[in-house]
Design a protein around this nucleic acid. Sequence first.
RNA 1: UGUCCCGUGGUGUAAUGGUAGCACAGCAGGUUUUGGUUCUGUUAGUCGGAGUUCAAAUCUUCGCGGGACAACCA
Length: 545
Amino acid sequence: MEEDLREGRNDGRIQTRFPPEPNGYLHIGHAKAICMDFGIARNYGGICNLRFDDTNPVKEDVEYVDAIMEDIRWLGYQWANVYYASDYFQQLWDLAILMIKRGLAYVDEQSAEEIAKQKGTPTTPGVESPFRDRPIEESLALFEKMNRGEIPQGTMVLRAKIDMASSNMHFRDPLMYRIITDHPHHRTGYTWKVYPMYDFAHGQSDYFEGVTHSICTLEFEVHRPLYDWFIDQLKQDDYRPRQIEFNRLNITYTVMSKRKMLQLVQEGLVSGWDDPRMPTLCGLRRRGYSPAAIHNFIDKIGYTKYEGVIDLSLLEHSARETLNESATRVSAVLDPVKLIITNYPEQQVEMMDMVNNPEREDVGSHEAPFTKELWIEQDDFMENAPKKYFRMTPGQEVRLKGAYIVLCTGCKKDATGKVTEVYATYDPDTRSGLPGSERKVKGTIHWVSANHALLAEVRLYDRLFSVENPSEEKEKDFRELLNPESLKVLNNCRVEPWLAEAKPLDNFQFQRIGYFNVDLDSTADHLVFNRTVSLKDSWAKSNPS
RNA sequence: UGUCCCGUGGUGUAAUGGUAGCACAGCAGGUUUUGGUUCUGUUAGUCGGAGUUCAAAUCUUCGCGGGACAACCA
């Protein structure tokens, strides 16, 4: 792609831009574009600017400007300059005037419907507007009036005079300007009454800034000839920005359209733009994804022109891979049942050393209290267990992670047959670190001390949609395809006391369960954890309950 | 019945015209105080035809399939 450098074009200069419209939050698809735009600049010793493509005041807001900047910084990038397309309104206006004077643009007084009708179809040519050949002075005067607010919104537009029969629909006298008087622009207020369209603003903005490579997604491929045409009207020397397209990111079990995401937010189907189930960067952040995990993912997917759909499992893999190296291991029991070590002294408390991360000796360990009464997972006890069940079942030995090997002796059940307590005896010689602990035991389970454990809320997230490609379903509205089980809230979880110090967004591995982080809602009195992604579980896979 | 873009294992992505490789997912096994990690093995692919060539995933051509384009959105 970048052999331009070898050919010495633009004096070997590389300049890109990331050009979001401030009308929504950035999502993982934008992250792909950001990594491309900023990454190219970084790799080739060039610069990348942030430019807000704010040519439609109706949809835009400063709220989004700030959020976008935060997300880009979070990904670890710093733009050379911040620009706004609205900075170029005067230059664009001047160019429009020049084009009218050259007979290349005219004011059209027809309605949107009439203009649309005259466009023709991709297979039939359009017809020319009756205003197409109006005198230059007339267009000039009207365009001025349009921008003075003397013309009602929606009644006139400025169009380029190109070719109504072109096989490229975008050449059929595209709109350059429309009147917008009922919405203030988030930066220029009511100064302007006419606003340039995307096609009349984007390439020129690139040109004004000195962009060498204008990288965008595939849907703009058809716009490229028009992009070049407008540049031709402007160009003074050899320099010209070049538009290059790559494929948009699609991921299974989610949607990547701003419109759909906005709908989910507005209709309360998710809790907000930063709902951990959303593919937004703020959502992923809240879910526990790190910038490293996002980069890891983007590096794996590549840039091509093929419009495919990436498996969600690849994103999850990227998260596991990065979190495995960084997340501190802790014990948390999500669905507790009491385990009583019948031969353990009533009041005794032993502090057990828990390794923070077996992958990394340098991060050390922390302590967890061990007592007679513990919480373990319901799942980790079975009264009548199948052969390959390596956890608690009467007569079987199991290791309590970081503590002792215990022998399960039985359980107590209530009237409904539900197990309320599990009993075991411990072998004092098998405390972790002692020679007696070397003994091989099939299973190891996690636990927390009943008297010391903290109560916590845990939010289990799953795929947002129950079908692989919600956008592809023609029959049903995408909202009907939401996964009803995308969020499960557990209110009776017990976590080890060490977690009292955890701060919002800290990542942990709940051993044997998954990666979790502290939610923004979490307080000292009410701990809240989000499941980022589960651990792989080859037992559950081969033994569906 | 237009123009443009794209077709490589289930998924995504590589291969100066010269051994079709990698990752995810799957499967089997070893190691393991996480049924995690890790390691080993393994299943599976160039949309089809014709042409150029000593040699084609790659070049040409004809098909087939998918996508984009007819917003006063970007």
